[in-house]
Amino acid sequence: MDAAIGGTVIDGGNSVLKNLTASRNGYIPAFHRDECVDCALCDLVCPDFCFVWDLEEKEDGTQATRLRGIDYKFCKGCMKCIDACPTEALSWDREIEGYADAHRVPLFPKLEDRSSSTPSSTG
């Protein structure tokens, strides 16, 4: 009964507390850093904004965008990124238990101790 009036959500962006892992259907895009050219085509087609980027300082002082990995917490396994990737940096792998946890790069590291207060719903 202490909810904000009008059904207003004061905390926009809180959907990052959700875990959408259950949407995957047995397959997962595996990321191979050595093959990646950081072109970001994967990022442009990803419906779920799972790709985690770093800004790196180059030797000449300019900044470079570098793909660090995938936050599998949000990945629904649609595999669009694999279709978009011009190299072999993403592969279509059968998801083995524990793979996602072991290879996940958190998009929001500060939130790692918080989890969803209600069950995730993926429509």
Binding site: G13, S15, V16, K18, F49, D71, K73, F74, K76, L107
Partner: peptide
């Protein structure tokens, strides 16, 4: 933000 419920 991620975590939306769109279909794969």
């Amino acid at each position: 933000a991620p975590g939306h419920g769109a279909c794969p």
